[in-house]
């Protein structure tokens, strides 16, 4: 679940990051990503395990298959757990909800608890 200890994998990850194309690498879940993944699975009662959610796979539509109702449930859960208020008039919603990584990053930067 956390950063892999496999030296080859670690090397590849840092290489990718230096390569200016970090989005091409899936990479393992960071601790906050794992936490948000668990929240997603619990809130939406998904059959996937938290660890199986690829941090860069789209959460909605063709990716994990979530819809706008899931987005609502998720944002209510995020508000309860982290004190994050997501607003519908925020133009960044598309980016925030793009994938687990972007959502976890938003949580990390905006949490009040």
């Amino acid at each position: 679940m956390n950063a892999s200890t496999d030296p080859l994998k670690t090397a590849r990850t840092s290489h990718q990051l230096l390569d200016a194309h970090p989005l091409q690498d899936t990479g393992p879940q960071s601790p906050i990503e794992a936490e948000v993944a668990t929240l997603i699975v619990d809130t939406l009662q998904l059959e996937d395990t938290p660890a199986s959610i690829d941090p860069q796979r789209p959460l909605f539509n063709q990716g994990l298959g979530l819809d706008s109702i899931d987005a609502l449930e998720l944002s209510l859960a995020l508000s309860k757990r982290y004190g994050i208020e997501l607003k519908s008039d925020d133009d960044r919603n598309g980016e925030i909800f793009a994938n687990l990584r972007s959502l976890a990053r938003h949580v990390d930067q905006n949490r009040t608890r």
Partner: peptide, 13 residues
């Protein structure tokens, strides 16, 4: 508008 990820957030608000 249905189809937007945040459509239901707007419903809630």
């Amino acid at each position: 508008e249905i189809g937007r990820t945040d459509a239901m957030l707007r419903v809630q608000e």
